[in-house]
Amino acid sequence: MSNPAKVLFFSYADRRYDLFAIPYVYFALRSNPDSLVEICLQDYDSFQVRYARALAILEEAYPGRFLIRQSELARKQPRIVPNVVRFVEAPQLKARYIYIGDIDLLVFEDVCEVHEELIARHALAFSNILRLQFAMSEKPRLSGLHFCEYDRYYPLPSIQDLDLAVENDEYVLYECMRRKGLMVPMDFQQRPECGLHMSLSRDPLGRTTGSAGGHYSRENAHGWGGRHYYGEFLKQIREPGFARLYPHLDLEFRLLLLAAEGLATGKSHSLHRAATSFLLDKRLIVTERAFSAKEIYDRRHDAIVSGDMEAAESIGITLCMVWPNRLDVWFKQAWLWMQMGKVEFAVEALSHIADMQGGVAFLQSGDFIKVHGNAIADSGRTGHELLRRLSA
């Protein structure tokens, strides 16, 4: 592992995120032949037991090109902010460049080529951006994807005055570079991710905020991105090398990978219905012990007649959860959402119908789409795709 290399991918994973470690190594090396990968873990001993076979397969595919080890900082400073570790623990491997990034990023591009070009074109000391929302604050931040010449980053400057159990990781990175006398201009804002960011803190499509934080919102949510890498993603997960590795990956990661495949193949609606049917424990969501579809339909009808559209909406959502593969359930909910002016949700319901057997013919047989065609078209990409499918 002492042979010269162009770039060293360096990251850290605590116990919650170490399911990404093996895939991170595989995809980074698959797309960057002149590179090395080093990952520090919070609990290497447990990881080694759980992924013994995967590590053996990975070593066969990429002998001597990666190192997964125990983080010394995580052992000595257990209260350290997890995201800080990657920026302040020195790697054991070395290359011309260091690329410090997120462990949940699947890399599908030649990172060195992308960032060397940016550094040369913009005369940068390193490739990263200043977070504009923090640029004028007392604690500015760089982003968490950092590409730099190895010898410019290490050895680190003294940061003994920073409380690493409290400080934000991107501020710590900013301070490291500032204290070395290196910085990027504020107007440089190009931050290529070079892959698919399968963040546990995000909804894959950016429909809502993710489940990791303490705040839920449908506004300003971020998805996994990487749409332009979908083709390469589908190609690489179908290759024999990854097929050998796949059965030995964490089950949760394989589920996340399936979600990403759903995005790349346009099958997210189908996966939603399958997950609702077979993975979701409805006892934890539906409070009533038993009911018939007719009983719920009647209750919904009464709510609509009385003008309580919110109650009718809630009842309809229950129907969609209990019977996710019924055309009539989704159509009634689409009608209701359209009446309430919730066109985006109506389009989602209609897209579920179009995705089901006989659904396109069902929608084509009535005038609902014709009547609401303009609203559907104005709703965005999903609406345009729905209209395209129905006109084919």
Rank of each mutant, 00 (worst) to 15 (best):
C194V: 01
G223H: 10
P240L: 01
S31L: 00
K6Q: 06
F362K: 03
L350W: 11
L41F: 12
E89F: 07
I317A: 11
A52Y: 11
S351H: 11
D163N: 15
Q357T: 11
D355S: 13
R299Q: 15
W224T: 00
A311C: 14
L251G: 06
H352L: 08
R179A: 02
L271H: 14
N325H: 12
D378T: 15
E385M: 05
W323V: 05
R227W: 04
F368A: 06
Q42G: 11
V84F: 11
I80H: 06
A260V: 00
G341F: 06
S268K: 09
K235R: 14
H222L: 13
G210I: 07
E239G: 06
N168C: 06
K332C: 14
E239D: 13
D14N: 15
A120D: 12
V172K: 04
I98V: 05
D367M: 05
L106P: 03
S158D: 09
F233G: 02
S2D: 11
A56S: 15
V107T: 05
N168I: 10
N220K: 12
S2H: 10
S391D: 08
L263R: 13
P192W: 08
A290D: 12
M136C: 09
L142R: 00
Q333L: 13
Y246Q: 07
E175C: 04
V286I: 15
D110P: 01
D281T: 12
P240N: 08
Y51L: 05
D104Y: 13
L350Q: 07
L162D: 06
A361V: 14
W323A: 08
R254F: 12
E167H: 12
V25D: 07
L145R: 02
K332N: 14
E60P: 01
R131W: 08
G210R: 03
R50T: 15
L164G: 13
Y26T: 09
D43C: 10
L256G: 05
L196E: 02
